[in-house]
Amino acid sequence: MTTDTATPSTRPWLRIGLTGGIGSGKTRVADQLAALGASVIDTDAIAHALTAPGGAAIEPLRALFGEWAIDAGGALDRAAMRERVFRDAEARRRLEGLLHPMIGAAVQREAEAALGWYTVFVVPLLVESGRWRERVHRICVVDCDEATQIARVGQRSGLTPDAVQRILDVQAFRDERLAAADDVIVNDGQTTPEQLSERVAAQHARWMALRDQPPYAPGTPHA
């Protein structure tokens, strides 16, 4: 584990893309990295803010899809939209065409303001998008077997195994994510919270050691 105790005060250069399938534990890993001094930019959190009541995407969503897309509280009706985009590829393209530029602009603003040892971009569909490899120096996958993913998502959200499987079917296969990974943090069904914390701390220490080395140091070419 790193022994650095100083507070980061300059914009971080090293950029990490953190990804993993639904239920893999990305958020828990990201929270632990933030506690260790990383700047964390979570694209899912940005998307939720944009589609919350009063969010910047609400009126454009209403105009694009109609009243059915907005729930009684004024937020995006995520369940209804999930059902729609799984059945209708064109609706999915329209949704992504609206949200992705808004999310991208918010990510850029947060990245420009980031102060930390390094910046972690949490992107659930990082491998699938094909756009993030050139934006980050390293890709870290939080790895988990599919059975554990289904169980975790069902416990936290109440979705049926079939519903979770439909989500998994539009994500990259596990071997595709692992093939794209520079770093892997295992968080399978046998991993205890203590083991996960140890693995996150060890990965943090490795990234801290890379910060001042080419090609990750300021002024060196992007990896």
Rank of each mutant, 00 (worst) to 15 (best):
R211G: 02
A34C: 14
D162P: 08
F65W: 05
V120K: 01
A217F: 06
L168N: 05
P221G: 10
V153T: 04
A52H: 03
V127S: 03
R152N: 14
P218C: 14
S9V: 13
A223S: 09
D188I: 01
E83G: 12
C140H: 02
A111S: 12
P8G: 05
R133A: 13
I58E: 03
E96D: 15
V123Q: 02
G73R: 07
Q190H: 15
R156C: 15
A80L: 09
E83W: 13
P124M: 12
L196K: 02
A201P: 04
L210G: 04
A47I: 09
A205W: 01
T7D: 12
T148W: 00
G74L: 13
H137F: 04
A45E: 12
I103F: 03
T19N: 03
Q213G: 08
A163T: 15
S39L: 05
R199S: 15
E96F: 13
A79H: 10
A209M: 15
R206P: 12
A75P: 00
E146H: 11
D145Y: 00
A205M: 08
M102L: 06
V127I: 13
A151S: 08
A49Q: 08
T160M: 04
V200C: 04
F121D: 03
D44Q: 09
A89N: 10
A49D: 05
H48A: 14
E176K: 15
A80H: 05
V184S: 02
A114L: 11
A105F: 02
G97E: 15
D71E: 08
G25E: 00
R199E: 05
A209I: 10
V164W: 02
L14Y: 02
A49F: 01
M208Q: 14
Q213I: 11
T5G: 14
L99C: 04
G55P: 08
T2V: 13
A172G: 13
V142W: 00
R15K: 09
L168V: 14
E110I: 05
I46Q: 02
M81W: 05
H48Q: 14
S157E: 12
I70G: 01
W68D: 15
H204F: 06
L14E: 04
P193D: 08
R133T: 09
N187M: 06
M102A: 10
Q203A: 11
L125P: 02
T191I: 07
R82Q: 06
A52P: 06
G37Y: 03
V40Y: 02
S129Y: 07
G74A: 13
H204A: 10
